[in-house]
Design a protein around this nucleic acid. Sequence first.
DNA 1: GTTGACAGGTTGTTATGACATGCTAATGTC
DNA 2: GACATTAGCATGTCATAACAACCTGTCAAC
Lengths: 254, 254
Amino acid sequence: MTTDTRERQAIRRSSNVPAYNQLAEILEQQIAALTDEERTRALPSEGDLSRQYGLSRITVRQALKTLEAKGLVYSAQGRGSFPTMPRVKGISGFHSFTSEVRRNGQEPSTRILATTEVDGLPKSVTEKLSVTEDENSPQVHLRRLRLIDGVPIAVEDAWLPKALFPDLAPADFNDGSLYALLADRWGLEPAWTDALIEPDRASPEVSKLLNIETDDPVLVAWRVTVTAEDKVFERVRSIYRPGFSLRVARYRLG
Amino acid sequence: MTTDTRERQAIRRSSNVPAYNQLAEILEQQIAALTDEERTRALPSEGDLSRQYGLSRITVRQALKTLEAKGLVYSAQGRGSFPTMPRVKGISGFHSFTSEVRRNGQEPSTRILATTEVDGLPKSVTEKLSVTEDENSPQVHLRRLRLIDGVPIAVEDAWLPKALFPDLAPADFNDGSLYALLADRWGLEPAWTDALIEPDRASPEVSKLLNIETDDPVLVAWRVTVTAEDKVFERVRSIYRPGFSLRVARYRLG
DNA sequence: GTTGACAGGTTGTTATGACATGCTAATGTC
DNA sequence: GACATTAGCATGTCATAACAACCTGTCAAC
């Protein structure tokens, strides 16, 4: 008496989530659970998936394209579609700090150092991140200390445009992931980031916060994050302590 | 007497280049020439493009999807498709050094410091870039000094797997872009990169090469580059001089 | 003047179908 | 046994079609 313990997940046609996104999510979960050995084998063919889930081939291809854009699979004509190999581990400075660190099995924490409202961006920011649009528009400025397992990792200055987040109050920053809050309340999510990364020496102020020596080598990242519709989500300057590695995974070339 | 000076480029149906790639290239050129002002206006609608170029809407959408994956445009339901704004300038450490610097209007040069063949990767590399596959396979090791306008910018150690590039000889490294050579001779192109970036102090050896002081803060990038079919193309460790900014443009989140 | 309904245009989703192109393994021939 | 051929299967490209969802400007009603 053998029963297939893998209950095949079905596509809910009545859902407002598109079928190809549902399929992409199912496949993403399955792929994430694969071992290195299993990753060398092809995924089910487009025809198989089409039959199994009752979708047209165009919808199946759309799901695979989604995963390909994320760098999770690749397709080879005549052979099939295959999972890709993960190449680096570590914490990315670009995604949500909270969830990234947690996924890594470590405990993130954040200490808010200051929250103010300002009428424009500092010159240092506009110089690094060629700002043309909302240079002089009101911003919420947020200074945070990021810690992993209690160890200070980075000093972060973030500027969020008030135009995009009406009624954003300093009190909102107190707990949890800022990204999660912004997604909940304004339905906005970061989709792309542009960054400049450079080496520097720790200033006396920063070295005290990070508990390192003045003039220790630090990594400075300037970045601007935009939504899928290319609206500026936030601008951030992060200063990372020595010994910390910034992960840039699955960066598309060409 | 008004003549339309813009000769509309046509799609060559006999070409072996897919129609959607031809259209994507045409649009990419047109977008690159736009001013910030013009970027706020929508592109021609999918229906317009379909009629103008004699393509089905599915093919037009495929072209737009290509540009969207590159971060050059975005689409908004009910409104249209729009170009995105470029946010950062500078030189990326991830693409071809030669062409990146040239596009920036500066003069790149490279001095080869050493080329050897080795039987495996150094432990420092395998530690940083969780290598599972070809750890002990033969590699060509290449040590280069990168210069911009005659100023030394970075010391680069690259390891290329011999399995992927049969007959790769040290003499091949002498001139021009390495990437161009690899594309010409083996038809292989880098598609993705995974990287770790960390701050460090310049060693005596590196400081001499970069013409800086020992213990100056430098930026160290470890990266592995793979082809579209997820085959390891090269592994590189780059050490950048102080004052140099590494650009990470259009990095996809989520 | 403000509001609301609506028309028209735009992208989003999904289906079916056809043929091209490339890879692999089985088959057949020598 | 070695090698060429081929059938079958995989993804790639492109077309037509229909409807859903969404946005904007117009115009009428209040």
